[in-house]
Amino acid sequence: MPEVTTAHYIFLSTALFTIGTIGVLTRRNVVIILMSIELILNAVNINLVAFSKQLLSINGQAFAVFIIVDAAAEAAVGLGIIIALFRNKETINADEIDLMKW
């Protein structure tokens, strides 16, 4: 087994990022779109932590903490909006959100 380097982690994060992007672009269910965004943010965090290790600097991990904070805030507001929308519209499919053109 070859030694695991930072590059491996970057591959992992890129792959996760790609999966998240595909999720955002293809899913209709807005909750799952939000989840895909969480995947993207996790990819970022994997990157940051790997860099942090590689560079022997704690800053990357601090950055990751902020990303998690952001993810939490976004999820809270996003889910709040989804509930408000659901109350009015009874759907959470992205392409049924069609009062305005996308």
């Binding site: 807005v30 965004i37 993207i40 970022v44 990157n47 976004e74 507001v77 909006i81 408000a84 305005m100």
Partner: peptide, 26 residues
């Protein structure tokens, strides 16, 4: 709907931006 669209795409773009920032850090 506007808020939801904005949020989804905005959060998505924040993710992308953060990815770029992480690379800058690295």
């Amino acid at each position: 709907e506007a808020a939801l669209k904005y949020l989804l795409l905005g959060a998505f773009s924040s993710g992308i931006l953060a990815y770029g920032m992480s690379l800058l850090y690295g």
